[in-house]
């Protein structure tokens, strides 16, 4: 079953720049997809449309049965509750410790504390930060902060996890640690879409890879077929 389906999606910004040309794309439930391409190729625009930060100019985007293109701004939260998003700059709240940052994503839905507590501990354990639950973001390393962000993104058990250059600020070793965490989350059934510049990582992970150029998918590599030298 296709979890994400794009049909004839076009995105033109107000200044006239066309970021995405007639794009068709199907992503299945449980997939792990990398999106790569040079700066300005439209990969950020593509995923921004997936979590409805941007609206497509034309075309259809279906995510888990929800027509994202038709979603009104005030209803965006309905989509956001089904997907988790991770960013390069983590976007953690500095006044809250790791535990609170993760619990925050649950509290706003009015979930009782007794239910939040085990879930938060579970996801912190999953990202390997159970013993740093009480640390504040400024006391954590970049990799650890990103893991908190991932924990926050998955605590609501989203079907899809969107990662916008999650390793962009991290060194190679830390990046691989993050990738291991993401791989594990993927194995638990969450579909992951990740934008990255780091082709070494992409090659080592051996997943499906979409290569974008000038707003079009120029190549769709099957699992394990991507080689860093091939482009």
């Amino acid at each position: 079953m296709d979890l994400i389906r794009l049909k004839n999606v076009k995105k033109q910004y107000k200044n006239g720049v066309v970021a995405i040309h007639d794009m068709d794309l199907n992503i299945q439930k449980g997939d792990f997809v990398f999106i790569i391409g040079s700066t300005g190729c439209g990969k950020s625009t593509l995923i921004k449309m997936l979590y409805r930060e941007e609206k497509p100019t034309s075309g259809k985007i279906l995510i888990a049965g929800l027509d994202v293109a038709k979603l009104r701004n005030r209803k965006v939260y309905k989509l956001r509750r089904r997907i988790g998003v991770v960013f390069q700059d983590f976007k953690l709240l500095n006044r809250m410790n790791a535990y609170e940052n993760v619990a925050f994503a649950q509290e706003i839905f009015g979930i009782p504390k007794s239910e939040i507590h085990p879930r938060v501990l579970k996801v912190l354990d999953l990202v390997g930060l159970k013993n740093k639950a009480k640390s504040y973001p400024n006391e954590l390393s970049g990799g650890e902060q990103q893991r908190v962000a991932i924990a926050r993104a998955i605590v609501n058990e989203p079907k899809i996890l969107i990662c916008d250059e999650p390793t962009g600020n991290l060194d190679a070793n830390t990046s691989m640690e993050i990738m291991k965490v993401l791989d594990e989350i993927n194995k638990l059934g969450t579909t992951i879409i990740m934008v990255t510049h780091d082709r070494d990582i992409v090659e080592r992970m051996g997943k499906r890879v979409l290569l974008l150029d000038a707003g079009r998918i120029v190549k769709d590599y099957e699992k394990g077929t991507f080689k860093n030298e091939s482009i």
Binding site: R74, Y77, R81, V85
Partner: peptide, 16 residues
């Protein structure tokens, strides 16, 4: 602003 942005991101509705 950042706080509001993050709240929106994790799925808080406007009223929330």
């Amino acid at each position: 602003k950042r706080e509001i942005e993050i709240m929106r991101l994790v799925g808080a509705s406007n009223i929330n």
